[in-house]
Design a protein around this nucleic acid. Sequence first.
RNA 1: UCCUUCUUAGCUCAGCUGGUUAGAGCACAUGACUGUUAAUCAUGGGGUCCCUGGUUCGAGCCCAGGAGAGGGAGCCA
Length: 483
Amino acid sequence: MQKRTKIKELINTEPTGQQVTVKGWVRTFRNTQFIAINDGSTINNIQAVLNAGVTDDATMKRITPGSCVGVTGTLIASQGKGQKVEVAVTAIEIYGDAESDISKPNSYPLQPKAHSLEFLREIAHLRFRTNTFGAIFRIRHSLAYAVHKFFNDKGFVYMHTPIITASDAEGAGEMFKVTTLDINKAPLNEAGEIDFKQDFFGKATNLTVSGQLEGELAAMAFGEVYTFGPTFRAENSNTTRHLAEFWMIEPEMAFFDLNDNMDLAEELLHYVIKYALEHNREDIEFLNQRLLDEEKNKPQIERSEMSLLEKLQFCIDNKFERVTYTEAISILRESNHNKKKKFQYLVNEWGVDLQSEHERYLVEKHFKKPVILTDYPKDIKAFYMRQNDDGKTVRAMDILFPGIGEIVGGSQREERLELLETRMKEMHLPIEEMYWYLDTRRFGACPHAGFGLGFERLVLFVTGMTNIRDVIAFPRTPKSAEF
RNA sequence: UCCUUCUUAGCUCAGCUGGUUAGAGCACAUGACUGUUAAUCAUGGGGUCCCUGGUUCGAGCCCAGGAGAGGGAGCCA
């Protein structure tokens, strides 16, 4: 095949009349002369100029939005104002048509005009071809790459923890069952329950909700490890921040206490946001402008104080605020917001879980920056978190981001076998089944810590999008698994 | 799962206290146009008013049930 040059490269090339080939998808065709072609390598299109006589009328008719073309021609300085260079076409080939006549069946649904995000969600298989989703998914890629680069450069080992797991004690949420049994005539045991001994794995299995426990096993050998993979929660959550299938980054480090853990999480977030700002400047600038345009239609009060670019820059220029749960409760209790009863749930006693309105108040009103909350009451946190000497709190930390809420949840782990077992008994967890996890505490236990970072929530923050369904290609949510 | 709002042309939306033939912008089609930038100009076509049932002389509008979507809450990442 005729080799092509990617548009990203071409638009930064000095035009010396060299012959080039561009292949991509038509965005617009103006004045029967100017084709705007996009190939996904950049948000920018290249302008291909079709001078008279280059091709016939029948071919011209086939140059429609969405069609796939390859053009060959000379790269010249553009006479027009919108671009530096353009291709003076000498040959054009149509690889694939796209019907533009909406009165015909199977016409191309993307029109050269603005579409709502809700509509684009219904055609998620085609929305990559829009500027907005092109930008989002290039940024998503960069963030994923930056995560791997960050950990690799620090000497972390990337672990692939299992997707199918027999453990259901991670306590992170409802699980999806994995089985090859016929659900209409599943074999029963003597007690009348489904006999999973006859199932594929010989026991009940589920999709993982977290790779953390396996991560801890590996950390007890490699020191510093991380996982970055899909996780599944069968919760009936219908929000702009939850998915049934999402990607999570979970580092686990031996010889780390909670402070080391927070330092690492903060460094990671700073690093990947900075990476995206440096490597996806144009995409972020496009999304920045998109949000500014959107805000023009809003009343003054609802507009955000900072633009997306300012928000991202602010985030990497400033340390996150670190506050204990106990301090947070007294800040909230003393706040005018609480006294004037503006919270739906008033903050009175120590020990209650914070509502998202409280988290938002701390992040967006009080500190006006990302906040790390630490040392939560043990009763509202998972079994594996290390207990403090006060007997009431655990070494947990949540990182709260403006507009997103909880983006990271982590803790120093309880490495003391007796305390861990006691806690598991209190919480009615199957200690025998989890012998493999407890073995880390039996054989060479050490202080260690880790956290989980919700990848889509990170992408939400960096793109300035507000619905998590718009930052994953094919979102899985309750009652929705199209495509 | 709970609360709440919405569903009218391909898309985004108007639609008067229930009244006769349901509108706009964009998109689309046809024509013009070789320096356009979501081109422009002219002309034109396009509707199961989400579904089912009810009230009424008459329903896009009112009532009941259902479906789908958005926003908020809970669970969390």
